[in-house]
């Protein structure tokens, strides 16, 4: 893991309030390019909130106030007039519960490229096929592209959602508990997929499953009560955490 790493995104002194409740406190965290960063911590510690800040998903929440910066391409994504649509195009997201559109498998993938201006059937076909292949689901669905995506299993739906996120060629893929609704076999497939995707993309994942964070991530951030307690290489965090709070959480001596 000592391979050369460069910054893809950087969170700087980020504070966030939901109304009067402060959910993030002066968070500083790097997101390295072509690496998987896992964010762990107990429920309510702010990990999903932090993840959602990275593509400004919190904008839609009332009374949510943010201070600090998130630098992406050296630009603060929270500065005035920042193109949020462009940001969300470049920072894709996969959610806890698979949420395919209630449309055909084909349409799920073609939808975003089409609204981004790709009209030719041949180009769309190419994108759909490539994304489904990249998300390791092509073999399972290629003969039923016009069937509803809702008929797929949970694990297939989640991989379809990942394929959908890939369809607009983002730089970063955010994953919020992507496997918590899946069985171990589907989970293993998603984890394998993450390790493949990271060659071309940067991945940030929020997970409650510490073994999963240890298995798949390159870097791990431990959060507690809105603060980033410790950030480091995953091996170091799980073998020899420097902060007592991290140690207690990881070994279950918590609370």
């Amino acid at each position: 893991m000592s391979k050369k790493t460069s910054l893809e995104m950087e969170v700087k002194d980020l504070d966030l309030w939901y109304d009067t409740k402060q959910a993030l406190k002066k968070v500083n965290m790097p997101v390295y390019k072509n690496k998987i960063t896992a964010i762990i911590g107990p429920s309510g510690c702010g990990k999903s909130t932090l993840l959602r800040c990275m593509n400004r998903m919190n904008d839609i929440i009332d009374k949510c106030r943010i201070e600090g910066e998130i630098l992406f391409d050296d630009k603060n994504v929270y500065r005035k007039n920042y193109d949020v649509v462009e940001l969300r195009k470049r920072v894709g997201m996969v959610f806890q519960k698979p949420n395919p559109f209630p449309k055909s498998i084909y349409e799920n993938i073609a939808y975003a490229p089409r609204i981004h201006g790709i009209k030719k059937k041949k180009s769309l076909d190419g994108i759909v096929q490539q994304c489904l292949k990249d998300a390791f689901i092509w073999e399972e669905v290629h003969d039923r592209m016009e069937s509803s995506a809702m008929g797929l299993s949970g694990g297939q739906q989640q991989r379809l959602c990942i394929a959908r996120a890939l369809s607009i060629e983002p730089d970063i893929i955010l994953m919020d508990e992507p496997c918590s609704a899946l069985d171990p076999i589907a989970t293993a497939k998603i984890e394998d997929l993450m390790r493949v995707l990271v060659k071309d993309y940067t991945v940030v994942i929020v997970t409650h499953n510490m073994q999963q964070a240890a298995r798949v991530s390159d870097y791990t951030a431990y959060m507690y009560l809105g603060e980033l307690i410790e950030f480091g290489e995953t091996e170091q965090i799980f073998e020899n955490p420097q902060e007592e709070l991290t140690e207690k959480y990881i070994t279950g001596r918590f609370g």
């Binding site: 799980f238 955490p241 140690e247 990881i250 070994t251």
Partner: peptide
């Protein structure tokens, strides 16, 4: 139990 950190050590 798949222990971690000090437990693993």
């Amino acid at each position: 139990f798949q222990p971690m950190a000090k437990d693993m050590r």
